[in-house]
Simulated scan of single mutants.
Amino acid sequence: MNYIGIDVGKFNHCCAVMNSEGEVLVEPFFFANNSDGFDALLHIIKPFQSSRHMSGLESTGHYGDNLLRFLLANDFQVGIINPISTDAKRKQKIRKTKNDKKDSLTICAVLQSRDYTHMTKNKLSLREGKQLTRYHHDLTASLNQAKNKLQKCIDIVFPEYNSIFATKYSKAYMAVLKECGSAKVIRETHLKHLKKIVSDASHGKINSDYPTRLKESAKTSIGEDNAVMTLEIKQLIASIELLMDQLDIVDRKIEELARTLNSPIFTIPGIGWITGMSILCELGPIDNFSSHTKVIAYTGLDCAVYQSGQYNADKTAITKRGSPHIRLSLYQAALPLCRFNATFNEYYNRKRSEGKSHRCAQGHVVRKLLRVIFKLLTENMSFDSALCK
């Protein structure tokens, strides 16, 4: 068995090759973090690929991502190592030394002890999915923040504005704000031009009395004549439109990746592409867990234990350890699950009839969902309500 250890750096990586007996087959050497460097690496380590081998690198930041994809594309077996394991192996030596060349040999030793996570192309897709879904959450948070700021500005310059439109953030709603920005400007805008703004934005579908109502409301508005707020409104709308376009592109990419993965999680009624991908990718490979209880603990949805002496708390909060993104997605999934999925709806109502609060019953639904997901993924089966009673 040959072990190919690579110490990752920003500009240069260091590689060494060792066999099962601890004999160094290739002394540590540096190669650049570019195509020429990768080609040079491949030329040196290719002969060791034909026999049993395992290459490995530490999971430290993003500097090794391109190298990881390169190794997988060239059919190398790759293990991802926790830096804690490398550090523990390094501390076993009497003499305290750390440099890139020695670290590449240390990584070989860690690979030999099998203390790594085997990376595959499918697992890499899950990692890319995690980046996408987290970016979706970031864009959504930025969009909500921009919308909240917009509403604050509207409350100052035209507080009656929202009562005119049936739907916030419709094309007509945004177009009028983008063009005018305040009650004062709407009062000064000719009604014919106001009608054109609304008609063009809605493609003539919106009720024609909206511009008239806007004009009348603007005349009696208590809104402040604030040029700064008007400018901020126009710029916030530009930001909101940009964020909505970006979110649409990201969501389409998530759906495309979800269809490629074709996971059983998407057979659960009430689980959409984005929510399902977020849960799936935050969990990672299901073979990392030996039971559903470990999945629940990993997501931080297990109840904390508080015991001291003779005292043992009957009620404790959840631990909230691990990724907050997966808890957000799970709780967001709970409501549509109870609405569109008879199995989860019945379970929620049963918990409510037992005297549980809405939030507590929702937590039970989320934990049931994780148990169901664990079964579907481990057995690679589609959702069947008859098996989830």
Rank of each mutant, 00 (worst) to 15 (best):
L41M: 05
G64P: 10
V110D: 07
D75W: 00
Q77A: 13
I81H: 00
L57I: 13
G79H: 03
S85V: 14
S50D: 10
L42V: 14
K96S: 10
Y63Q: 11
K102C: 11
L42N: 09
M54T: 15
G56A: 03
Q112D: 14
A88I: 13
L72R: 00
H53T: 11
L68P: 02
S50F: 04
L67T: 07
P83W: 04
D100A: 05
K46V: 11
F38V: 08
L71A: 03
D75A: 08
F48Y: 13
K91D: 12
A32E: 15
G64V: 10
S51C: 14
F76R: 01
H43T: 15
K102H: 09
N66F: 09
N66K: 11
H53N: 13
P47S: 02
K98C: 08
N66S: 15
D36V: 13
A88P: 09
L42H: 08
H53Y: 04
L41E: 01
N33E: 01
P83F: 04
F48G: 02
Q112N: 13
K98G: 06
D36M: 13
F31E: 12
R90G: 07
F30R: 10
S35D: 15
D39W: 02
A73H: 05
K102V: 14
H62M: 05
T86F: 04
I81Y: 00
A73G: 12
R95T: 15
F30L: 12
S59C: 11
Q49D: 05
L42I: 14
N99A: 07
Q112T: 13
S113A: 12
P83D: 08
A88D: 10
I45D: 01
G37S: 05
I45T: 03
S51H: 10
L72C: 08
T60I: 08
R95N: 14
S51W: 02
Q92K: 07
Q77P: 05
E58N: 03
R52H: 11
S104A: 15
Y63A: 09
S50C: 09
V78S: 04
D36E: 14
I107E: 03
T106D: 11
F70E: 06
S113F: 01
P83Q: 09
C108E: 14
G79E: 05
E58H: 01
G64S: 13
K93E: 13
R90Q: 08
T86G: 12
T97M: 10
I44Q: 06
L105Y: 02
K96N: 08
I94H: 08
P47I: 04
L42Q: 07
T86H: 04
L68D: 02
L41H: 00
Q49N: 08
K102D: 14
F30G: 05
T97L: 10
I107A: 05
F48A: 01
N99E: 12
L105I: 15
H43E: 15
M54C: 11
D65S: 13
V78A: 03
T97R: 09
Q112Y: 02
Q77R: 10
M54F: 03
I94G: 12
T60V: 11
G79Q: 07
A88H: 09
D100R: 04
Q77K: 14
F48M: 03
G61W: 00
